[in-house]
Design a protein around this nucleic acid. Structure first.
Length: 658
RNA sequence: GCGCCAGUAGCUCAGUUGGAUAGAGCAGCGGACUUCUAAUCCGCAGGUCGGGGGUUCGAAUCCCUCCUGGCGUACCA
């Protein structure tokens, strides 16, 4: 039973005497924010009293008089300006915990009205190797997919990979001009990645050579403007100060951009081999774009190369997804929608939504300066076109009620335009949600950028995490002793390897998931691999400890579960643990309503904390009598199942021993 | 210029959408293994919630303004 929901219903019933629409006031029944206030608190009396022009405490009193919760709660108490504090009856908590124990879903009921969700996440560019920036979307999206599915929704996950854009033109150009056949034979994806980087570097070189004089010129102009302004300045004028500041920051950013352009130039100019290639390919950027255009236009040779490259790239991605234990129902890349794009644009034009502007076909949305460009002047389609076609497809083929885009916050404007355009274009109730997340920042608090030649690939990050986990697993196990203080490690090499995988990968995922996804994300190697505090390891350890107790006590878990002993709650630590376990469903509801897995990590961390407090106060195997022992065994068994299930919804595994 | 987002303890971050005395984890200090796993627990210390003004019973949260930083802003995705 969802107690919180039941209490809200009871309040709504009574509140209807005071207000036409009681729902928003019933929503003000919440878990108590402090244990001293009981288990739940209702905050509705104050705002309602204000609205009705009466005294809040009086209103709370009259609410409580009419409220019928005697079957669930102790008599409600009114505190402070009009808080209503509720404490569940012990036998209610006991009833719920015993019910949850026999439930496969550990007491979490499924949603009443399942919806069809399409979750679009990860979506890397196949031409570039994945790096840490791709982690957030993959990990958050996967957790949402697992959670929504567990709650009973129909979920279709789709990896909308970038397999059709400009970067493929670069690879094709690179392959035609620079391929090392031996390298391609032995490691095709590595060679393709090298070719991509090479073409990119050479293009950047030419563009830098062209731009440096321009930027230097504008820097000069800015500097002159500033000194002129300073000469004319009135020192008392505050507004001028601000203008100066602005100018200075413009100058700084011009300097930065010159510096970065010079680095790009030097990368080639200082390398005789690259220099030679650059001279031999002066038009490389334009020619690479042409290869893309040819591919899109159906050129046979480029199509053949694409057909050859794509499966190799996808296979390489699959290797990483397997390690991360992230899976998709579909991997329809951008290319999948290519045949539909012409029709999308034609339809938009027919409906008078797309118009031509500067040679490009655009949808203009009122209130937005930037247009939604659906076809470029050169005839190529954009990702706006693809995204429109994709929504149409998901609507038609999947009957999607909601589409979640787990994508970087920087694309907020794109999705805003997409949603507006869909509203105008298709007559549909489909709900598109941009589940955005913050930028990955470097340790210098500036956006994380892979330095050329020194980029932290996702693959090497995973390797490092597992390697560090292996060291900790080994040293911890080596330190174990038996009752006579002799060294007594209990894990063989293979088991150690397995645990290292689970702990290392889990740690990385958790580091990402426990942040509020909206915040910017500071990439910190040490923190990501930390094994103490609020980490996956803490919960994994709590789980392994429970299994350790079962082993030590020779407990047959199947027998335990089949036995007729009831869980009973006498100690306050037992009650606190039981109540926390019963709140798993509440935690999942908040995750689902805001698409925020960090609310689940928070719940699990608290659950594990309550569990360790319980250990301190309540011996299990050495409980005073058999009834208590069996009760506590069942309680920790259920706690372990909730931890395992919760971690699973985060995409994190557990192990029996650590 | 316009728009979006952020600023909370030394560091990294939560903060249940306006609720009660602002919380964790690291780092620091002090304790706890003859005890079901010390990858742990308990305690201490640490705060002008960027500044200022406003709204009300009540503000980290809402409004205005200023400061600082990030991002986006027409044919890359």
């Amino acid at each position: 039973m969802n107690v919180l929901q039941e209490l809200k219903n009871r309040f709504a019933h009574v509140l209807s005497d005071y207000v036409d629409d009681p729902a928003p006031f019933a929503e003000m029944v919440k878990p108590a924010q402090d244990a001293r206030f009981g288990d739940f608190q209702a905050n509705c009396a104050m705002p309602l009293a204000k609205r009705n022009g009466v005294n809040p405490r009086d209103l709370a009193t009259s609410l409580v008089e009419k409220l019928n919760v005697t079957d669930l709660c102790e008599p409600p108490e009114i505190a402070g300006p009009g808080f209503i504090n509720l404490r569940l009856k012990d036998d209610v908590v006991e009833g719920n915990i015993n019910q949850a124990y026999t439930d496969d879903r550990v007491g979490v009921s499924g949603v009443e009205q399942p919806l069809t969700y399409v979750i679009d996440f990860s979506s890397p560019n196949v031409a570039k190797p994945m790096h840490v920036g791709h982690l957030r979307s993959s990990v958050i999206g996967d957790s949402l997919q697992r959670t929504m599915r567990f709650l009973g929704h129909k979920v279709i996950s789709d990896n909308h990979i970038g397999d059709w854009g400009t970067q493929f033109g670069m690879i094709i150009y690179g392959y035609k001009n620079f391929v090392d056949n031996a390298a391609y034979e032995s490691d095709p994806v590595g060679e393709l990645a090298r070719l991509y980087r090479l073409v990119n570097t050479l293009s950047d070189y030419h563009s830098a050579v062209e731009k440096i004089p321009q930027v230097e010129k504008s820097l000069e102009t800015l500097a002159e403007e500033l000194s002129q302004m300073e000469a004319d300045a009135d020192p008392k004028d505050k507004k001028q100060k601000k203008v100066f500041k602005k100018k200075r920051s413009e100058i700084e950013s011009a300097k930065d951009s010159i510096k970065s352009l010079q680095e790009k130039k030097a990368a080639v100019a200082d390398d005789p081999e690259l220099k030679e290639l650059a001279i031999a390919h002066p038009e490389i950027a334009r020619l690479a774009r042409e290869e893309t255009a040819k591919l899109h236009a159906g050129d046979a040779e480029n199509q053949k190369l694409w057909d050859q490259f794509l499966p190799q790239c996808v296979e390489a991605l699959q290797g990483i997804y397997d390690r991360l234990d992230v899976h998709f129902d579909h991997t329809f890349g951008e290319s999948y929608y290519n045949p539909m794009l012409a029709e999308v644009v034609a339809d938009l034009e027919a409906k008078g939504l797309a118009t031509e502007s500067d040679g490009a076909k655009c949808v203009f949305i009122e209130g937005n300066a930037a247009p939604f460009i659906v076809q470029k002047a050169d005839g190529a389609y954009t990702y706006a076109t693809t995204d429109l076609a994709t929504v149409q497809y998901r609507l038609k083929e999947f009957g999607a009620d909601k589409v979640l885009y787990v994508v970087d916050a920087r694309q907020g404007e794109h999705f805003k335009l997409l949603m507006e355009t869909i509203k105008l274009w298709l007559n549909t109730e489909i709900d598109l949600q941009h589940v955005s997340f913050g930028t990955v920042m470097g340790e210098d608090r500036r956006p994380f950028k892979t330095r050329s030649g020194d980029n932290v690939g996702l693959e090497s990050l995973l390797d490092e995490a597992v390697r560090k986990a292996r060291e900790i697993v080994a040293s911890n196990d080596d330190a174990k002793t038996d009752s006579t203080e002799n060294s007594a490690p209990e894990l063989d090499e293979a088991t150690r390897d397995e645990i290292s995988q689970i702990v290392g990968i889990g740690g990385i995922k958790y580091a990402d998931l426990h942040h509020n996804r909206e915040s910017d994300y500071v990439f910190d190697w040490d923190k990501m691999l930390a094994k103490t505090g609020d980490t996956a390891t803490y919960m994994q350890y709590a789980y392994a400890r429970i299994q350790g107790i079962f082993r030590r006590g020779n407990i047959d878990v199947e027998q335990l579960r089949a036995s007729s002993f009831r869980i009973h709650l006498d100690e306050s630590a037992e009650r606190a643990l039981a109540l926390k376990i019963c709140r798993f469903g509440e935690a999942l509801d908040t995750v689902a309503s805001e698409y925020r897995p960090n609310l689940l990590t928070q719940y699990l961390f608290e659950l594990a904390g309550v569990l360790t407090t319980f250990y301190g106060e309540c011996p299990v195997l050495k409980a005073e009598d058999e009834t208590t022992k069996q009760s506590r065994l069942k309680l920790i068994d259920l706690a372990g199942r909730v931890i395992k299930q919760g971690l699973d919804l985060l995409g994190i595994e557990v192990c029996e021993k650590m």
